[in-house]
Amino acid sequence: MIYLITALDAEARTLVEHYRLKRDTSLPYTLYRGDNIILLVCGMGKMQAAMSVSALLGWKIPNNDDILINIGICGAPPSYSIGEVLLVHKIIDGNKHYYPDILYTHSLRETSLLCVDSPQESILNYPVDMESGGIFLAASKFFKLHQMAFIKIVSDHCEPNNVTKEGVINLIHTHLPILAQLFTTIQTIQCSNTLFSTEERMQIEVFKTHFTKSQGDALEDALSYFRLKNPTTSLRLTTTPIPDSKRERSELLESFIITLTA
């Protein structure tokens, strides 16, 4: 699943249309959903962003191979061109610094980003936005650092009054292919960390109910050993009926563990 976060409706518009996302009213925030994408319009400012992202992720808890991408416009010093797409490697939010992990190749310009409290009219050292700090803070409770990316498109040189809704829609539209490519790239480096299929997991859980907690832990270790050692071999839990006697059950488990770890 891709979790897309934008601050503004205008930033979301192109993405909603391109990915054919449908409005979802499950949360008191502007939300769109498709087969493999959830898009949240988090609102302006870091507090709004942190609250709405927390609500979204608490509601739809992400998996190890999901990704979260914040896409938005930003003001920037003149050394950045209007329309330039930036990938953020450091978010400076007051005295807090956040570092998303960029563990993939890309052709974008990387930058630090200042997360500020209000629209900036004076030129600062770095590009500025108003949500990234809040999004990072909330999302990093649910995602590992390499599952998150912050992409900003330069909309102005710190002249926020010159930014129009149509201009924002256009900027995202122009760069849609780059964004789509980046989503794919970021997805390819995710590790699922899940050793067993849903079906296998269900069987394991049922099997474990016959044993004590520590026996269950030993079984989990043996199963993990088996799967990591033989990634392509399918798992067959014992077909022997589970005996009633505690001693016989322990013996059964012991011999099963020996088979798995032989």
């Binding site: 993939y104 190749t105 790239t185 480096i189 995710q190 590790c191 050793l195 990634p231």
Partner: peptide, 10 residues
């Protein structure tokens, strides 16, 4: 488990 594809590793 290892990432499914390594082609985009820097």
């Amino acid at each position: 488990m290892n990432p499914s594809s390594l082609h985009s590793q820097p």
